[in-house]
């Protein structure tokens, strides 16, 4: 048994009010600790709110910002029971780029920072206008005794991300989100197209990476957009351990056995059987072909470089 109690902070951040959100994070970290949690996870931009536009620069923090360090200090262990916290904010780099960042805080310090890699700039999203995209993807060790992979919302809509994190050592994949609910429908599982799509991919990633997947999505309203919550913990066999209600703010506690990862990976050794060299070789080939540096031996006449099929 490797028991872990996870607290899902399905919060409604106040837009642009960093101090208020910091205060609620401190309060919820205290509640998570009092509830016996070993890990508490907050949503994307939980410290700032989502629809910031030009406010982004006004709520940005450097990684040595005293307010962030003070929040990290709240995870210092008092006695045997430690607490890890995953929080999200606007990070300003030394060269003044703004990133949507998610950080693992534990043992009183900032253990790891992951910058959002994929910034949706289509439909109702306009993130690339206001933010820079991260370039690094790394799993991180943790005091929890498993590797942790941090991702932010849209990062999980790119198939390679969960796989790369699992191959890099993550056994616990965390996605923090500010997912706007949309596409109301009558006949799907829960009446909301966005939720149905997310639930499908969370289960699929958990199964294909044989890892725990922790998804924390915010609630509340920024301007026209309502965030739907529905935070979840999915086991390494792809089955939901816990599903939080849609739209209800709350701190939800979920008990998992991290030993399930080993059991699932022994029974279903998908990661063992991955062919990294094959993937790298073929990716390099496609990159070369797209750059016009290599001929594509399998392409039709008229196809774009790197694409095998011509436009019709």
């Amino acid at each position: 048994m490797q028991p872990l109690r996870i607290a899902l902070a399905q919060t409604a951040p106040r837009l642009g009010l960093l101090d208020e959100n910091l205060a609620s994070h401190h309060a919820l970290i205290g509640q998570a600790r009092a509830g016996g949690a070993g890990l508490v996870v907050f949503p994307e931009l939980g410290l700032t709110g989502y629809l910031l536009q030009d406010l982004a620069a006004e709520v940005a923090m450097r990684l040595d910002d005293p307010r962030l360090l003070e929040l990290a200090a709240a995870t210092a262990s008092d006695g045997p029971a430690g607490l890890s916290a995953i929080v999200s904010f606007v990070e300003e780099s030394a060269d003044h780029r703004l990133f949507i960042a998610v950080a693992l805080l534990e043992d009183g310090r900032v253990r790891h920072v992951q910058r959002k890699l994929f910034l949706p700039t289509y439909g109702l999203f306009d993130e690339r206008r206001f933010f820079a995209a991260g370039d690094l993807l790394r799993a991180t060790p943790s005091r929890l005794g498993v590797g942790v992979g941090l991702t932010v919302c849209e990062d999980f809509w790119h198939l390679g991300v969960p796989q790369l994190l699992a191959l890099d050592g993550a056994q616990l994949l965390v996605n923090v989100s500010s997912s706007p609910g949309r596409d109301l429908a009558a006949l799907n599982e829960i009446g909301l197209g966005t939720a149905t799509s997310w639930r499908m991919l969370l289960r699929t990633y958990a199964q294909l990476t044989t890892s725990f997947v922790v998804f924390v999505n915010r609630v509340g309203v920024d301007e026209s957009i309502s965030f739907w919550g529905g935070s979840e913990v999915i086991g390494p066999n792809g089955e939901a351990v816990f599903s939080a209600p849609l739209y209800d703010e709350g701190l939800y506690f979920v008990d998992v056995d991290l030993g399930d990862v080993r059991r699932e990976r022994i029974a279903l050794p998908l990661l063992r059987d991955e062919r990294l060299e094959l993937a790298v070789r073929e990716l390099n080939r496609i990159v070369s072909e797209r750059a016009g540096q290599a001929d594509d031996s399998t392409s039709e006449p008229g196809a774009e470089p790197g694409l095998d099929v011509a436009a019709r």
Binding site: G181, I190, G191, G220, V221, S226, Y247
Partner: peptide, 22 residues
């Protein structure tokens, strides 16, 4: 065009409360 009216009412209630509060 059919929608889940429970979800619609929930979203709209949060929207109205949120707009007023903000």
């Amino acid at each position: 065009l059919a929608i889940d009216t429970d979800v619609a009412r929930r979203v709209i209630a949060e929207f109205v409360r949120g707009q007023l509060r903000q």
